[in-house]
């Protein structure tokens, strides 16, 4: 047995590393949700469904805009040296996912705005005639709409992946150092967004479609989680111990109960029954999926922070 003692006593670091509070998980969740929503609404634009007047692609960009801004606010709240936040945009660091992320976010906004401009609310149109003119002009080009759809999907995917890569680039935390985290967060973002649209969709067809899609995303997500854990378990001792934090350790209860059962398995079951018309669609399933998505971010961030390399000779 190796006894390790240390005299270090730094805040956020000891007795175990915990630099990020609620802000970063919330930021990652909202980022993922927006990513999913951008992909969905982009897909609807691309596939021409925007022609239907109750398509969710009308309001998704607006909601995305709000969620993304809330996410950015959470990120900002987490910064310890806020007065220097502008430093993010005086440089671009190729090696830093956080730098990539801040620039991706800069690109996401215009793309979201472009999407928003396609379907302006009537009141806005009346108040600001210039916007109406722009909007009408944009709507006159089917190609432009399709391209806006494509670029929304593309940047959405970038954003979704980035939320995972941000963590997995931090190799010091074994739980995160898995090359599959981007896929997990992307899938979780998609399933969360699908659930969200499912929850608020006015169009029955759309709701069905998204429930089905959500089921697909959830199954993939489950599969990715499995791959991730297998990957960790067969890697070094340190990585195995990190996986154990989720499977049987400090974070196992939350992981199994909230992420796996409540966040994936139960809504999957409910939605399978619903799409097969065994039961009515309930808002419960999407709510569970969204809750699971939030908790997944918390679990991965906190357990990841807790996972560590043992300093042995």
């Amino acid at each position: 047995m190796l006894e390790l003692t240390t005299t270090r006593h730094n805040e956020l670091i000891d007795p175990f590393f915990h630099a990020w509070g609620w802000e970063i998980p919330v930021y990652l969740f909202l980022g993922g949700l927006v990513a999913g929503m951008m992909i969905i609404s982009g897909y609807f634009l691309f596939s021409g469904r925007y022609k239907e007047t109750d398509c969710s692609c009308y309001y998704l960009p607006r909601l995305s805009f709000i969620f993304l801004s809330l996410g950015m606010l959470a990120l900002f709240l987490d910064l310890e040296h806020k007065q220097y936040v502008w430093r993010l945009y005086t440089t671009f660091r190729v090696t830093s996912p956080m730098s990539w992320g801040s620039w991706i976010l800069i690109l996401v906004y215009p793309v979201l705005i472009a999407n928003m401009l396609l379907r302006l609310p009537e009141t806005t149109k009346q108040k600001i005639p210039l916007l109406k003119k722009i909007s009408d002009k944009m709507n006159s080009s089917h190609n432009l709409i399709r391209n806006i759809g494509v670029i929304n999907m593309f940047l959405g995917a970038m954003l979704g992946m980035y939320t995972g890569i941000l963590l997995s680039s931090l190799g010091a935390r074994p739980l995160w150092s898995t090359s599959i985290l981007w896929l997990l967060f992307l899938m979780s973002g998609l399933s969360g967004a699908a659930a969200f649209v499912h929850l608020i969709a006015k169009n029955v067809y759309e709701r069905e479609l998204l429930a089905k899609a959500d089921n697909g995303f959830l199954i993939i997500e489950l599969f990715v989680i499995m791959l991730m854990i297998i990957g960790l378990v067969v890697s070094t001792q340190v990585h195995k111990e990190a996986a154990m934090l989720l499977l049987s350790g400090r974070y196992a209860a939350v992981f199994w109960v909230f992420v796996i059962f409540i966040g994936i398995l139960i809504p999957l079951l409910l939605q399978l029954l619903a799409v097969n018309h065994k039961i009515h669609h309930t808002p419960l399933a999407p709510i569970l999926v969204i809750t699971g998505g939030i908790i997944l971010r918390f679990v991965i961030v906190y357990a990841g922070e807790y996972s560590h390399w043992f300093i042995v000779k």
């Binding site: 630099a19 910064l79 806020k82 931090l170």
Partner: peptide
């Protein structure tokens, strides 16, 4: 210090936990 935004990415990436956030934020 005056380029640092206090995002803590460096803290999270150091396997030695050698860094901390100074009370002044950096």
């Amino acid at each position: 210090h005056d380029e640092c935004i206090g995002c803590k990415a460096c803290l999270a990436s150091c396997p030695y936990d050698a860094r901390f956030i100074h009370p002044d934020g950096y």
